[in-house]
Design a protein around this nucleic acid. Sequence first.
DNA 1: CTTCTGACCAGTG
DNA 2: TCACTGGCCAGAA
Length: 99
Amino acid sequence: MPRIELLEQIYTIVEQIPVGRVTTYGRIAAMTEGATPRMVGSALRNLPAGHQLPWHRVIAASRKLADHGGAERQHQKLRDEGVVFDRKGRVAFDLVWPD
DNA sequence: CTTCTGACCAGTG
DNA sequence: TCACTGGCCAGAA
């Protein structure tokens, strides 16, 4: 599978995460044909300025935010759309998409 | 060509 | 639950 098409598959999936829900790098990778969780993280890190993808709805399999530069902003964006975090910064199972 | 570095993850103790 | 480990694989140097 060509690198570009893999990227497009990743973006297409991220695009479909419902508001107020989240999914993980690993789940997205599994939905593509050959991508690995690391590639998904890399794809989001390199998003071009001006994109409109809900990158903030992608979290780690531990259901915590991955450690990266925009984590703080990501946390606020999710809070703004109603996502609740428990005391240890984890998101409820029910919010992980797809069901 | 080799080495290193990640917005990762599942297994193990 | 947490810390650590080995595996992962495309880029950058």
